[in-house]
Design a protein around this nucleic acid. Structure first.
Lengths: 278, 278
DNA sequence: TATACTAATGACTAATAAGTCACATGTCAA
DNA sequence: TTGACATGTGACTTATTAGTCATTAGTATA
């Protein structure tokens, strides 16, 4: 394990237990068995650490969910797999999930807020696309309400098992929430979240990643990565991004090649979104 | 306005904006136009202030909801009034609601956690009793799931309008959530939150107020309050608590007399709970 | 082995903020 | 007017913690 990983791991534990502001850099370094100076060789500041943690987990998290939603062919399984994947990630990375819920909307610094917003909107988009696919146009009026209810279920039930360390029956939880979501989506008629409201919500907020930003990210990945298959896939995807030439099947296959590499997950999510691979 | 009220009001504003830990006592006193010393003449510490704020608002809040639930005769109106009252309180005391959501489960100090827990459980109890009354025994298996979904709706939709300062159509919101709640309660069949799970949740947590604690509170109220009707009502209720002698109608009337006095709201809630007035 | 370079250390600085207290100011009754 | 008491003040103390930097330890190369 690198020093960076060690710091991130111990920091997650401490932040989850005591909160970000209540945890000092000294406590983190003590826990890691390193000096304070060593910490500042790895991270420029305490803020940079929390930002790195958010990126690290949220990129994985978001892209995993996106992959499941985009690649589950069978509509019957879709919702189940969605909830199962979400809560599975929550329980695997319980400490990070706790931080996410605890430190929510706190206003540390502008960058933190912006980041939270970007991931939040990415998740909204994924859930909304799932809702649209599942229930079609007949719930056009209520789709945003359904989306917010799904988010509400996620948050409420996550808190339940994260902060009371209860035994978690993932299968039952997923089935139970699938039923709730279906029941809601198929029966509600009074939307609260109208299209105008959504526009008000989204105006003046973060925008999508640009082609240039994705290119930069790929460049970075290419330099970091050793494995030849992943590296070549990235190079081809980069060319495809600059000048489309490959067939959708090839693009999809290339994306498949990189999606399980930790450092590429986010790139793969952005590319799926960009190429609109279904 | 007393100095105490002034401090509480300005503190609420600052805490909602920047968070509890990020707001210094100096900033609060500057905002109030008083000195730091004056602050410490009113509150023994910064912690005592936040605890006082929680009690002040949560007591009002909880007892208002409880009153609405216990005193709405017509089942048709019950859910609507519940949601309307909740979101009305949230929007009236938006700054406090923000703090409540932002600083949630943070672990400042043991007393804070305990207090949050007590109010949380009081709210659970109120919602559960409402759900039971509305849907009867046929949803015995799923009532806790319904209760948690109601809490999920509250939190999710509260966040929506508190942190994006959107225009709020209270009537539409209440109607929309009434429908969602009804649809869920009447159609779900797969409970996730079983009776055993509830027991696990509630074990080793806060307990109900004892008779002696209520008596002490009444004594305190009697000394604080000037108004003769309220004062006499309290004295009679105190005697009733020590030795029951009055008819339920009289008790209910006495409770009605005190329920709108800010300082008595919590007492009135505890007494309603104790006497099981329906 | 000597040299050059990188990584790690922890005492130190600077900033912030909770809480205190000697002193000042205001108020009211005799 | 005086004295007694309540109320208010803000400089000061104490504690904590983010971040720095001169120094040391470790390692690889010639």
């Amino acid at each position: 394990m690198t020093k960076k990983q060690l710091i991130m791991e111990k920091a997650i534990e401490l932040f989850a237990e005591k909160g970000f502001e209540a945890t000092s850099v000294q406590q983190i370094t003590d826990e890691c068995g390193i000096s304070k100076g060593a910490f500042y060789l790895t991270f420029k500041s305490k803020d940079e650490l929390i930002l790195a943690l958010i990126d690290y987990f949220m990129m994985q998290f978001t892209s995993d969910i996106d992959y499941v939603v985009k690649n589950t062919k069978n509509k019957e399984d879709l919702l189940y797999k969605f909830y199962y994947t979400i809560f599975n990630s929550f329980s695997k990375h319980a400490d990070f999930a706790k931080i996410l819920i605890k430190e929510q909307i706190r206003s540390f610094n502008e960058e933190f807020l912006q980041k939270s917003h970007i991931y939040d909107q990415a998740m909204d988009k994924i859930i909304l696309s799932m809702v649209e696919r599942l229930y079609g146009d007949e719930i056009h009026q209520t789709k945003h309400d359904v989306m917010y209810c799904v988010k509400g279920f996620m948050k409420t039930y996550a808190e339940l098992f994260l902060f009371h360390n209860l035994p978690l029956d993932l299968d039952l939880l997923a089935r139970s929430l699938v039923e709730k979501t279906n029941v809601l989506a198929r029966n509600i008629t009074i939307p609260f979240i109208s299209t105008e409201l959504v526009q008000l919500l989204h105006q003046s907020k973060g925008k999508e990643a640009t082609k240039d930003q994705i290119l930069e990210l790929i460049e970075q990945n290419i330099n970091e990565i050793e494995e030849s298959i992943e590296k070549e896939s990235l190079i081809l995807l980069k060319q495809q991004l600059i000048e489309p030439a490959l067939s959708p099947a090839i693009v999809k296959g290339l994306l498949e090649n990189i999606r399980n590499h930790t450092q590429c997950k986010w790139t793969s999510y952005l590319l799926r979104d960009y190429f609109e691979v279904l």
